[in-house]
Design a protein around this nucleic acid. Sequence first.
DNA 1: ACGTGATTTTGCAGGGTCTGCATTTTTGCA
DNA 2: TGCAAAAATGCAGACCCTGCAAAATCACGT
Lengths: 235, 235
Amino acid sequence: MQHVEEKTAATDSWRERKKRATRAALVEAAVRMAVERGVEHTTVDAISEAAGVSPRTFFNYFDSREEVFVLVGAESSARVRSALLEAPRELSPLEALRDAMAVELQEIEQQQELWRLHAEVLRRSPELLARSIGAHMADELDLAEAVAERIGAGSPLFSGNRAGNTEVEAEQRRRALGLYPRLVAAVGASAVRIAVEHWCVHQEEAAVEDVFLEVFDHLAAGLPEPPPPARSGRR
Amino acid sequence: MQHVEEKTAATDSWRERKKRATRAALVEAAVRMAVERGVEHTTVDAISEAAGVSPRTFFNYFDSREEVFVLVGAESSARVRSALLEAPRELSPLEALRDAMAVELQEIEQQQELWRLHAEVLRRSPELLARSIGAHMADELDLAEAVAERIGAGSPLFSGNRAGNTEVEAEQRRRALGLYPRLVAAVGASAVRIAVEHWCVHQEEAAVEDVFLEVFDHLAAGLPEPPPPARSGRR
DNA sequence: ACGTGATTTTGCAGGGTCTGCATTTTTGCA
DNA sequence: TGCAAAAATGCAGACCCTGCAAAATCACGT
């Protein structure tokens, strides 16, 4: 994982815009090419040529060839995280998380084009799918920390200030993490994953958001004995 | 992913035993070496030399260098799957899954040695952790199919016979998969993941199995509003 | 407009990963 | 023992990825 953007201040110069453009060009070139000729025949040389940069430059933007296929929704987790922290305090952690994720999914559904292609790529390449899921999972830990932060807001430890990011401190944060935040994060992440996968396959049958909310509620409420009343013939 | 073992029949010849031995030797050499000098300095050449085979042979056993670090518990998912299908029919899908997974975790805890080292490797390498989790997730889909099979046992479609494994048929199976099996599988997989991660960090504080059962029950019962009564000072 | 320092791009060398193919070695069995 | 199948091996070659230093580009003050 490479830092996508660290400093939010004074970041709109010609320089920055060009970097974003290059990055986007690389992703787009890669994804389109992968849909056409398959991931394994999509070499770094080809991608960078299509994007109009040198092969060496590719690695200034991505740590590995595969990252360009996996990191498509990289900013999402950060957005969910902050939405979660800023949500009204009346909401329970679960509700806050559900809303934050629903909003994010909604926005994703807008930019269908790229996501559709991306989904296509992942569907054809189990290897990459696994990697992608894994990447999203790493987010699950972050998410759990955010949940913990929201719950124990004001706690002397871990409030705000995520600056100190040494290996050791990350380790300590993880140690101090109770089980409950992990459960909440797991429910959210599972719901997103199931909803998105379901949506990729049953394209256009329903909005991602709806599937997500249904799945989320089931998970959050606990799984009843018999299969949940297979939602009436809505298609 | 490389097929670990397909035919269960007539598989105990000297030949087969040797293959298993070589495989194990490679894994062990790799993991030990990774703990000592770090994953990135553990080259294929070094691993195969330590295991006493040629570098080329390594790739007869693993599709990539990283697989040797990720595929440590590869047979687990198959065992859980069959335990799930063979469990007494009185048990609900959830109960059957919980028991099957608990048994598996128990057995894993026996061979502490290798798993401890493996956990150590993953802890130090987020990249690999993500991959490993991703690999286990791929199992989640299989798991969901098994759950579906158990529920709709006798269903004209998809009963037994997983022989036809063309791309197309796999696709069709996934399409026909309802949401409920996915939820059950997600609960199980999440519980395992959280339990194992928790266990890796808080080593020796509690048996994996206990953490797993606690997590599983919470997830299956639904998440209550307030954090679940932080389990009383049981250690 | 011009110079200067900072940032980014690029080429290049070199080591590691992984595959296909032909050859040799080992194993299973009559 | 001899033969056929399976596995291990060597080798060539393509690709991935990284450090380093030179060149191109950008930001900014004068």
